[in-house]
Design a protein around this nucleic acid. Structure first.
Length: 423
RNA sequence: GAGGCUAUGGCUCAAUGGCGGAGCAUCUGACUGUGGAUCAGAGGGUUGUGGGUUCGACCCCCACUAGCCUCCCCA
């Protein structure tokens, strides 16, 4: 045990049971995405670091990406996000793609962060984007996709909330209360911290950041104004359209949602546990300059990303993960003795040819061992062919679920199994 | 990058500074052609790693590693 080399920090092993969940999640995502007419795509897991560095030049990218030098001396990064790769893919075929372009993806990403609840260093993420349409209808569509996903997996509006804001609205409102362009970064940070600090601490902190008491009071009023969205024609239209699409019950306006503001230009949103438990389940918004940074013509898009870790946490919390039985095979063909081993393999082949998931016990051991094995792997039926059966041209089928057993003509094997209603 | 808690058999956990145990799981048998139950028995440990204190360390101290949690951050 001591000598087993440990996993890389922040990675997870996926045993078949874990894999069943991941596959299930991928399927839920596929169902929702395709229901809205989106196509699946993927990009390389490895990219040149330049792809991320070029984009907004954030030091964070360099600090949080898994970077290494390849044998040719290039700086390579395991992809920390998908959007830059998508931007390149769009730019490469900018004039031949059909717009609006609707794409989704589900795959692994890596970020060198401190693992904790809801966060690992290697994780899977659903990315979905609508590119080449700047209307509010597209924003509403992506929001409806979020809601549809939650509804599909049983996360009802009392369990999960999608909070929406608009960056332009915030810009103009902040300007109205006299926040200068230079103060904006500080103010965004303060907005982000508001729920984490006591009111008086927050106020004192603001003063220490050279904000006036007047601005802080105005900011407080602004952040408490849940009707502020009415000032934004765009948000008004979006909320209206969400109502028409029948999912308005999932959404709240929240002026404290700011998410990656260097990136987003209009609508921004994130989803959280309604009890404000844990980190965000997903986040996204409207970006105006998707392909400009990688050398294409500016193209507007809207999209969001959802990680597998936090969604698993919340699905577990609410008991919404279905019982995913891991069943490698429906039928186990036993091996009665040394002489009948080849017959067992022949029988298994017949069943597989009929499309039945079948495995063969690979050696002769006592029959009860083989039965126990079949039971442990949750097989539905066991095939037994011993000397008695072989002499009579028969075969025995044991139904593990009903605990019944019958001996039939060899030629009736496949149809008998099919009639057992096990598929 | 900062802090807190934790690390004992495959798993979940006990053990006042003085003989490291239990439950579950595994294997074997009861049952020489039959699975989930029951009973009996067996195997399995350098107590995460490396130092230190002590007559004596799972226990106390230090460092390291990993996990969980919180802060920071979150494209």
């Amino acid at each position: 045990m001591k000598e087993i080399i440990q996993r890389v920090k922040g990675t997870r092993d996926f045993y078949p049971e874990d894999m069943a969940f991941r596959t299930w999640l991928h399927q839920q995502i596929r169902n929702v995405s395709e229901r809205f007419g989106y196509q699946e795509y993927d990009a390389p897991f490895l990219e040149k670091l330049d792809l991320y560095a070029a984009k907004s030049g954030e030091e964070l990218v360099k600090e949080q990406a898994f970077v290494f030098m390849d044998r040719g001396g290039s700086e390579i990064s395991l992809r920390p996000e998908l959007t830059p790769s998508l931007a390149r893919m769009v730019a490469q075929k900018q004039n031949e793609l059909v717009y609006p372009l609707r794409l989704w993806s589900f795959g692994p990403f890596w970020r060198y962060e401190q693992p904790q609840k809801g966060r690992t260093r290697e994780f899977f993420q659903w990315n979905i984007d609508l590119i080449g349409s700047s209307g509010y209808q597209s924003d509403a569509e992506l929001l409806a996709i979020c809601a549809d996903f939650f509804r599909q997996v049983g996360l009802t509006p009392d369990k999960v909330r999608i909070n929406i804001n608009n960056r332009r609205l915030m810009d103009s409102e902040l300007q109205k209360i006299g926040i200068s362009q230079e103060q904006k970064q500080i103010v965004f940070r303060m907005i982000d911290r508001r729920d984490k600090m006591r009111q008086d601490e927050w106020f004192t902190y603001g003063l220490s950041q050279n904000l006036t008491a007047e601005s802080l009071n105005a900011l407080r009023l602004l952040l408490d104004n849940r009707e502020l969205w009415r000032e934004s024609p765009e948000l008004t239209e979006i909320f209206n359209l969400l109502k028409i699409m029948g999912c308005a019950e999932y959404f709240d306006f929240d002026p404290q949602v700011i998410r990656g503001l260097l990136y987003y230009t209009g609508t921004v949103f994130e989803a959280r546990d309604a009890a404000k438990d844990g980190r965000a389940l997903l986040g996204g918004g409207r970006y105006e300059n998707l392909v400009g940074d990688v050398g294409g013509d500016p193209l507007s898009g809207v999209g969001f990303a959802m990680g597998d870790v936090m969604i698993q946490v919340i699905l577990e919390k609410y008991g919404l993960i279905p019982a995913l039985t891991v069943q490698p095979a429906k039928v186990v063909v036993t091996c009665f003795d040394k002489e009948s081993l080849s017959d067992s393999y022949a029988l298994a082949s017949v069943l597989r040819a009929a499309g039945i998931k079948t495995l063969c016990y690979p050696e002769y051991v006592k029959l009860d061992r083989q039965m126990k094995y079949a039971n442990r792997i949750h097989a539905r039926a066991v095939i037994i062919s011993g000397p008695d059966e072989q002499a009579a041209g028969k075969i025995t089928i044991k139904d593990l679920e009903n605990r019944t057993q019958m001996t039939i003509d060899r030629s009736l094997l496949v149809e008998t199994l099919e009639s057992m209603n096990i598929f």
